[in-house]
Nucleic acid binder design. Structure first.
Lengths: 121, 121
DNA sequence: GCCAATATATCGTCGTGCTATACATAGGCC
DNA sequence: GGCCTATGTATAGCACGACGATATATTGGC
């Protein structure tokens, strides 16, 4: 009966401004290629954040232009893939954005708290 | 020495998707007019969220079009101002968006946690 | 009279998320 | 062989909201 799921997809505007953060954070460990990043973000978000190809690749190209990530083609895993890894600037940006996001979240919580808006639990 | 302030303004993209939530939440109490909303959001965010007039008024008009808020001109306070208050639909939307935001924040925290990204403290 | 703060409004631009589309490879199945 | 699905990368064009610039009117202080 398709119980009204608590886990609907998040609206596009919510994602805005944090997609960079998400991608940078999944790249914090080993190098990864686009398709893998897509699957990891989906998994890590419990299926609630979907990065369509038309969002993901332009985003990766932009991050590369900004020298936050570095790409290299490599078939070491048996298939030619474009691998991305964080640059030093990328790590710095990741830390900065994580901090900014934490501050922002705190900010919103205060606003909601002041309005005595408690999401139903 | 101007120590790198913790309280820089938040980037425009971060705001996106939560501006509605903010405005709805400051309207959760008494009715307010635009200029007042602007000042309250600024104050409640410790000066980190600024709602420029070019953002605020179109936003209010949009929320009004969606019947989430209701406007009425009134000079009861000595000056003609346009007062906004939440409609029933607005309250419902506020609760829903607050919930969605909380879920989303949880989502991001998990992603950052998995990447072992701890904002500097 | 002048200026700053208050108060509302709109236009045009810009950034960016996403749908649609394209194309290529790999593996399973009939 | 032929077909389908999953994998993998890429781009064009649209949708939409945030914001700077700009306009206009009122109020109060000097």
């Amino acid at each position: 009966m398709e119980e009204k799921s608590v886990t609907g997809k998040f609206g596009r505007d919510l994602l805005r401004g944090s997609l960079d953060l998400m991608v940078l954070s999944v790249l914090a460990g080993e190098r990864k290629y686009g398709y893998l990043i897509q699957k990891e973000v989906r998994a890590a978000s419990g299926g609630r954040v979907e990065l369509p190809a038309g969002t993901l690749y332009p985003l990766l190209h932009r991050l590369e232009d900004e020298r936050l990530i570095k790409a290299s083609w490599d078939d070491a895993t048996g298939r030619e893939r474009k691998w991305y890894e964080l640059t030093a600037a990328g790590r710095k940006r990741l830390a900065a954005q994580a901090q900014e996001w934490a501050d922002y979240a705190q900010c919103i919580r205060q606003l909601l708290g002041a309005a005595r808006v408690e999401p139903a639990t």
